[in-house]
Design a binder for these strands. Structure first.
Lengths: 292, 292
DNA sequence: AATGACGATTCCGCCGGACGGAAAAGCCCC
DNA sequence: GGGGCTTTTCCGTCCGGCGGAATCGTCATT
């Protein structure tokens, strides 16, 4: 980095050779709470990869994104690579498969996925639509599994991807069964709008949540993608708590994407998909040990 | 530092208690390469979870497994939990879903899986057998995906799980297409035996590898589990390199587990499954951008 | 070939944060 | 209530992490 180079940003202003100045940088895209602890630096390196999907960064890229000096980055990346958290190809670094190994022992992640998979595949085979399995992480959902339907709508979802609770089918389900404090946090905060149909009013959202909790199924229309209907249902763990949600996303015209039969009265999705989703959720719950 | 502070000699001499004493101790259960760097300690904490599948540890458990003092563990676990790498429930810690988020941007991990998934599901639907997608990590394979067949054999495999190259179908494929040095390392090292049929002779293994490379398919019998035949084929990336392997495991009697038709002459698996696996591998290669 | 720009790597001295021990605070079971 | 165990906090020491600067390697331009 430029020794004499004058950075346009105020960053180098003082050049007080404190070893902490590097943090501020440009108010990084996400991580703002860097406490300059050694552990935080390691995590900052990993965060550099989480930020992007493209996931192939040079050492300098990592250094910039993590807000660390090149020297520090060099050393940390070296250690992480040796351990297997990163992989090096030429001059590009990527997340290593050892991370997958770790993720595999995540109870709410791949372990849950493992158990749910057969039922998700059945649901996918029956509907030919995008099938989702999601858990809640704070005020967002995280997709644990997604079975993609070639002709279906919305390829926005992605394993490990995060979305707001109020705008997704699975999110509504998880929010409806979440604790009071979680609901209040979402209801009191700003509700991001994606389409004209997105529920951004706390009153409406509150009603929707009550309805979802009562009927044990969420059916929403065009909350994120116009013309896409989301249908979701809760999955219970062994202790009865809602641990996850299963959902599908179908075109709102009610037809299956790969033209099958014509929809019956009331719409194909209403007649078939809703019960299918509910049944799938129940089967997974049972497989998890829920007494039902 | 106490520049002016004059340390009484005997003091520093007597207590030679360098802060590293804890490491060596009793030749820790696993990790021996701890270099007592801060980064290594963070990774040691994570390794504590990778060691077990059960994946639910108390603070003291983590401390023991990682070979760190309780104080250090307490602080690191706190930071990791705040970041999302760990999740706390009551007094038990688990791997957090943020790790899944990281793993999702692993090119050789979930990204590969994402692309391959439709073809794997087709193969699974056609064969009703255990379907595997694996990559090579050093001298082992790591399963990136596994579609489980309820009636099938071998539930030993597991996403993120590791197995030797010489004893698995996908491993043979990956080894056959690996570099010379990798092959020599395996051939010169001890070859772990699982069954009486496991190839543990370097001569035989060398021949098998040549055959696999020539035919572009591996068919092995009872290498790990008696009565289980593994069939695997290589997947090529955009640059033509072998990046992965697809495989299925079927009972050696040649019947599909869920009694379908009787096997044709030569065995059902030979007639149907081998071409199916090869075709699947080719389709995935094409989806990855292999010109072929 | 010389030059310049950029990234990766190594070296080095300083110092502040990480470390372990000790003690306190919970927690549970007998 | 006491004893054993785990978790949490406090604190002084000190050593390993830190950034800067220098070096090496690799391209692209002239």
């Amino acid at each position: 980095m430029g020794s004499v180079h004058v950075q346009p940003k105020e960053r180098s202003a003082s050049n007080g050779k404190r070893r902490d100045v590097h943090v501020a940088a440009g108010a990084g895209p996400r991580e703002s709470g860097d406490k300059q602890t050694a552990c935080a630096r390691v995590l900052a390196v990993l965060s550099a990869f989480a930020a992007t999907s493209g996931a192939s960064l040079s050492l300098t890229d990592i250094s910039r994104r993590a807000g660390l000096s090149l020297t520090t980055t060099h050393r940390l990346v070296g250690e992480l690579t040796e351990w297997g958290a990163l992989e090096r190809h030429d001059r590009q670094y990527r997340i290593g498969i050892r991370v997958l190994e770790l993720a595999a022992s995540s109870t709410r992640g791949l372990e849950l996925r493992e158990i749910a998979m057969p039922y998700l595949m059945d649901l996918h085979a029956a509907t030919k639509e995008n099938v989702h399995l999601a858990v809640r992480a704070g005020l967002e959902i995280v997709y644990v599994e997604r079975l993609h339907a070639p002709g279906g709508v919305e390829i926005l979802s992605r394993i490990g991807g995060r979305w707001p609770l109020h705008a997704t089918g699975t999110g509504l389900v998880l929010l409806a069964h979440a604790g009071y404090d979680v609901q209040e946090q979402v209801l009191s905060g700003p509700l991001q709008r994606f389409t004209s149909k997105t529920i951004c009013d706390s009153r409406t959202l509150r009603q929707a949540l009550a309805e979802v909790k009562r009927t044990r199924v969420a059916v929403t229309d065009g909350q994120i993608t116009p013309g896409a209907v989301a249908i979701a249902s809760p999955v219970h763990g062994a202790d009865g708590e809602v641990v996850s949600a299963v959902g599908v996303v179908v075109p709102s015209n009610g037809f299956a994407p790969r033209g099958t039969e014509r929809p019956p009265a009331g719409g194909w999705k209403q007649q078939t998909i809703v019960p299918a989703v509910v049944t799938t959720a129940r089967r997974i719950s049972r497989a998890l040990g829920a007494r039902h």
